[in-house]
Design a protein around this nucleic acid. Structure first.
Lengths: 112, 112
DNA sequence: GGAAATACTCTATAAAGTAGAATAATTCAT
DNA sequence: ATGAATTATTCTACTTTATAGAGTATTTCC
C-alpha cells in the first residue's frame, strides 16, 4: 500500500482547482488561503517536483508571449495516475473515519 | 498553521476506534486492516510516541494481572487536545475538497 | 543596456517515516 | 526456582519528506 501523504493530496487538489493557472506561486497562495498552510517562496517546488517525478503531475513552461513582465510560469497539470491516486486517497480517508464508536463521534461532533 | 499529518490523523482515529484495546500491536493491525498501510513490528511506536510527546495521546502500562502470557500492554488514549486536532483536521480536509471545478469532480467521481 | 517585475532553482538543515533485530515481562510446566 | 513459550515493546540506523531562504533566471519597458 502506498497512500498519498496529506501534502501530496493537498497539492494535487490545488492543481485541480487552479486549472490553467496552476503554477508554483499561485499554488502556494491557494494552499495558504484554503488551509492556512504556509510554504517559503521556493519551498512549494520541492513537493511539486516530487509529484512530477512520481507521475502524478506533469509540467511544462508556459508560453513566453504572455504580454506581461517576468519569468515564464511553470504550469502543472494532473495526470490520470494522479486522479486515480486522489480517488483512492479519498476512499481511504472515508474508511479511516467510518464507524467510530458512538461516544467518540459525540466528542468529535461537539466541542467536548 | 500546524495540521496533522495523515499518519497522525490515522493513528489518532485508530486509538479512538480501539478504545480500551488501543496498544501498539493492535493499533498496527487495525491500521493495516482499515487502510492497507503496513508498519514493521516496532515501527508503529515511533509515530505513537511522537503523538504522546506532542500531547495528542497519553499512555500508560496496562495492569500486570491480566491472566495471560507475555509482556504488559502499553495502552494509549486520546487527549482533549488530540480530539480538537482531529476536528480541525477533518474540517481542513473538507475545505481541501470543497468546490472543485465541475469537470474535475466528474473525473474524480467516475473513473476517467 | 539597465531597472523593474515576476517566478523559479538550489541547497542545507530539521523532522518524519520505515524496517527489523534485540530485549523485556509475563505465565506455565517441571 | 528455572527454563521455555508467549506477548509486546524498545532501540536505532537509514531513507524520505518538510522547510526556509538566498540566489538566479526570464521577460518587458524605458
Amino acid at each position: 500500500m502506498n497512500m498519498l501523504s496529506r501534502t501530496e493530496e493537498m497539492l494535487l487538489l490545488a492543481v485541480c482547482r487552479l486549472q490553467t493557472e496552476a503554477f508554483g506561486i499561485n499554488i502556494r497562495k491557494e494552499v495558504e488561503a484554503l488551509t492556512g498552510k504556509r510554504y517559503s517562496v521556493g519551498g512549494i517546488y520541492v513537493p511539486l517536483d516530487r509529484l512530477v517525478k512520481k507521475g502524478f503531475l506533469s509540467t511544462k513552461t508556459g508560453r513566453a508571449t504572455e504580454n506581461r513582465l517576468g519569468r515564464p510560469k511553470r504550469l502543472f497539470t494532473i495526470s490520470s495516475v494522479g486522479l486515480a491516486a486522489l480517488r483512492e486517497a479519498r476512499s481511504l480517508y472515508e474508511a479511516m473515519w467510518a464507524s467510530l464508536p458512538e461516544p467518540v463521534v459525540k466528542q468529535l461532533t461537539f466541542s467536548g
